[in-house]
Design a protein around this nucleic acid. Sequence first.
DNA 1: CATGAATGAGAATTCATTCAT
DNA 2: AATGAATGAATTCTCATTCAT
Lengths: 232, 232, 232, 232
Amino acid sequence: MNARPARAPSRRVPVSKSATSTSVGGVPAQERKLRTQGKKTLRKLLDAAMIVFEKRGYHAARVDDIVKVAKTSHGTFYLYFANKEDLFRALLADVSDEMTELSEQLPSIAPTRLGYDELRLWIGQFFDLYARYYPVIRAWTESEVGDSDLGELGVNVLGGFANALITRVAEVDPPVVSNPDIAAVAMVAMIERFSYYVLSRSLDVDRDQLLDTLTSILHVGLFAGSRRRPTR
Amino acid sequence: MNARPARAPSRRVPVSKSATSTSVGGVPAQERKLRTQGKKTLRKLLDAAMIVFEKRGYHAARVDDIVKVAKTSHGTFYLYFANKEDLFRALLADVSDEMTELSEQLPSIAPTRLGYDELRLWIGQFFDLYARYYPVIRAWTESEVGDSDLGELGVNVLGGFANALITRVAEVDPPVVSNPDIAAVAMVAMIERFSYYVLSRSLDVDRDQLLDTLTSILHVGLFAGSRRRPTR
Amino acid sequence: MNARPARAPSRRVPVSKSATSTSVGGVPAQERKLRTQGKKTLRKLLDAAMIVFEKRGYHAARVDDIVKVAKTSHGTFYLYFANKEDLFRALLADVSDEMTELSEQLPSIAPTRLGYDELRLWIGQFFDLYARYYPVIRAWTESEVGDSDLGELGVNVLGGFANALITRVAEVDPPVVSNPDIAAVAMVAMIERFSYYVLSRSLDVDRDQLLDTLTSILHVGLFAGSRRRPTR
Amino acid sequence: MNARPARAPSRRVPVSKSATSTSVGGVPAQERKLRTQGKKTLRKLLDAAMIVFEKRGYHAARVDDIVKVAKTSHGTFYLYFANKEDLFRALLADVSDEMTELSEQLPSIAPTRLGYDELRLWIGQFFDLYARYYPVIRAWTESEVGDSDLGELGVNVLGGFANALITRVAEVDPPVVSNPDIAAVAMVAMIERFSYYVLSRSLDVDRDQLLDTLTSILHVGLFAGSRRRPTR
DNA sequence: CATGAATGAGAATTCATTCAT
DNA sequence: AATGAATGAATTCTCATTCAT
């Protein structure tokens, strides 16, 4: 099985980016032109939501909490978002956009010291982005249930990363793994989940350790056959 | 940071598993002396909960749903469990037990074809167990928020796996990675998350493909320097 | 134009009686077997609603008001009805049933003193029924808006009366009016609206006066050509 | 009870019509000196209200809806009206005025072909007026609840019609009905309600059919004893 | 005159948990 | 043991009205 898994992650890709991409949730899809004032309030709400999601998690987060943190009123919230999920979508769209952009910047990886460093740098960027949006990502994890289409966004993002990685893995000659596409997803899984463990404080590891470990494993995984150590 | 991370995952490990027995609220105390009838009802409820968690997720699951699926009444539910979380703990304890047991069975891994096959077999067992308890695990993922102690159980389980793997990784000579303990966690992360992707149907990969991929990467990762291909 | 108008009133007749006819609103279409206790509560709620609708009207009626009058709790309300409209439907179904039954009892009308008396008796029964359900009918008037299907029930009921009357009007020989079916509806309109005026206290007329007036006009209308006075 | 019912309808007639001018809240006081611009906005709002009332009904109509249809802002609305009811009163006053005027034009009715035609013409005028203001009338029907004084306006209007008719009925010699005043109200009820049925599309009857039917019944009712058919 | 933004009281609805039978 | 019924605290959401620009 060679080519399909690559597309697999996008199996449920209906709502790629769409209108929401600009992060404007907006009253039931209306919410046109916002003046300075309006934009400020919108941002206050989004920021507040991040804080509350971080502290409470998605499900436990109350619109009331968000409103309090944003120092605005209940009514105002519904002026900008139809409900909590709507706001959440706006945040997710932001993450999604940035993640996709990052995935497109994955460099070609050489079995050299330089290649190792470049890879490390890129994983570092991923981790930083992941850390920044950690509350949103955790919330996504939480809400990733049932038939909701919320999970799809996440799947798309992961798929994006996997695809980027697949391209690089496929460039490796001679091939180390028999199914580069599946392997790519496994690697993404590792990067993602390991970052999650670290950020959730389940794991007492710092940024450098994380990067060293992930980069090593990936580099070894990619070039196992052709070289000894990344440090060479 | 070299040796400690192994313990890191258990940073929050207060309630190992006996949780169920101690934290059980008032009513469920009668859980002890259960006659045939009682046991049957208990089972019905646990099974029903699995089904509902699977379909709805933990947060969205209503006691009412569970009760309906179990074809019993509201009152009866509270005869067996103090609340939804209590029931969830019971399920988690089961998973936890079986997972721990499995982690203790991780074989010593040799850089040979046999070692590869043994590892593959073990990962297969993990995946099957993971698949069986998928609803519970997903629910755990969901509930892993805030100050609840529910997440700890999961951390313990992962820590168990990581520890088992660390032992094996440390046995490898010469060492491939500089931080075997951290690397072990990264690998567990990969196995776990990749399985999750597959089971959540985000990924169109079958069991064999999953096992091939994971085993390959792990085996390569462990013995990168000393050999070429696991298949040799 | 002769025959169509007769059917006209039923132009929108989708939900004739259906399951709701027994007046059991019921939690989203479930609400199966009710014990004595349950039935009592159901009745309390329906009665309370009549009182509140009478006093406040449909729109202004709050679930809270109903619950208070019924001396029960908010939660209980939603145990029996999905919402205010659901309860209202249950009441409407009752009215509808009784009205339909009454319409079927309209006697054949003779141009005699006896015919007059029989007609008067029947209109009296209508008025009494109308008076009994006045709160519901007024609420219906209020809610008879837009695309809701609530209005249809009422249309059906009126249509039932009109049809009954048409049959009688058509029996008259020689025919007095050219379009008996349309005329029948006009007469129903008069009976209904006049009753409404009287009951809404817009009009200071007592039951006997109402019956005398309506019966006279109807009798005259039906037999204008063949006789002088109903009293002869 | 013989003569009084004529005044009955006005039993609650405190605020004949100048209501608008007295009950107007604070802001709309500026309604006076309106320049071209202002008048245009005022009209836009009134028209919009008609449209929204038509579509949604009075209660369900939101100030927001009206404002949107009028393509103006929330703030502007309150520049012209104290609230929704205030606007509604303004519309009602218009209807009321025109209705009253029309009622004063009811011709003396003769038991002849000419009388029939004149009556038909007049009912036609009534129906057209009724049709034009249908949204307002329906809204009035809806709001005619409780202690609001809104209903009174309507009662007054009806009373006006009834009085006009009473005068004509009383002119008939020999008298057909014993209580001309009550009968007059019953007839008004019929005309009004039948028109309502037709306009609410509950009834598939066109304008001519409506006029034929109503005129026939009325003419027969008035001159039952003295003639056979209006067409003779 | 006009408008976008904000407000907050009020109403609907859900659901875990308790209770009487 | 089991169950139908009841409860009410907690939340979400709406919308008339006011305000600053």
